[in-house]
């Protein structure tokens, strides 16, 4: 049995955006804080820290999950993708990121990293998703700027483009 004492830091091996990291973490360290404070990847945002707002959403083993409801010690041996892993540099952005820009799907940008992680998984894993499904996935995120319409439009645009490209 792995038994990790509360007041000590323990070695964690984790792959983030394809790169292996060996870090130290106390049991109570949140995955959000591991990413932001220990590793320095500040794209993942910390909002509510109790699973409601969705700003901290990352992929764990390819599936969107809340980094704030996950402790660093739980991802030992796991593979994680953060918003930094979507497009390695600003040019080119992914199709979804470009669509966000075109449709004004963000204003302040606080919620955007989490949204991109949930929606990038959706457009890849469910190419036939309709607007209702997009809105269902969006229900796991709070955005106080956009009213969501631009986010829905951007996502629907990417889904339609994928279908067009797939058909030709």
């Amino acid at each position: 049995m792995r038994y990790l004492r509360a007041d000590a830091a323990h070695p964690i091996a984790v792959t983030i955006n394809g790169r292996p990291y060996a870090v130290q973490a106390e049991p109570r360290l949140l995955l959000t804080d591991l990413l932001r404070e220990v590793i320095g990847l500040t794209g993942t945002h910390t909002g509510c820290e109790h699973g409601v707002c969705g700003a901290c959403t990352v992929h764990i083993e390819g599936i969107p999950q809340r980094a704030c409801l996950t402790y660093a010690v739980q991802v030992d041996g796991r593979s994680i993708t953060t918003v930094e892993g979507l497009a390695p540099s600003a040019a080119p952005l992914t199709a979804l990121q470009s669509a966000f820009r075109e449709h004004h799907a963000l204003q302040c940008g606080f919620c955007t990293p989490g949204l991109l992680m949930s929606l990038s998984h959706l457009v890849e894993s469910e190419p036939d998703a309709d607007e209702a499904r997009v809105r269902e996935v969006l229900s796991g995120h709070l955005c106080r700027c956009t009213g969501y319409q631009g986010i829905v439009d951007a996502t629907m645009d990417v889904l339609a483009a994928q279908r067009r490209d797939g058909a030709t």
């Binding site: 049995m1 792995r2 038994y3 990790l4 004492r5 509360a6 007041d7 049991p27 109570r28 820290e49």
Partner: peptide, 11 residues
């Protein structure tokens, strides 16, 4: 942030 706790992950 949570208070400190021991973390046990049994096999």
């Amino acid at each position: 942030k949570p208070a400190r706790f021991d973390y046990a992950c049994p096999d």
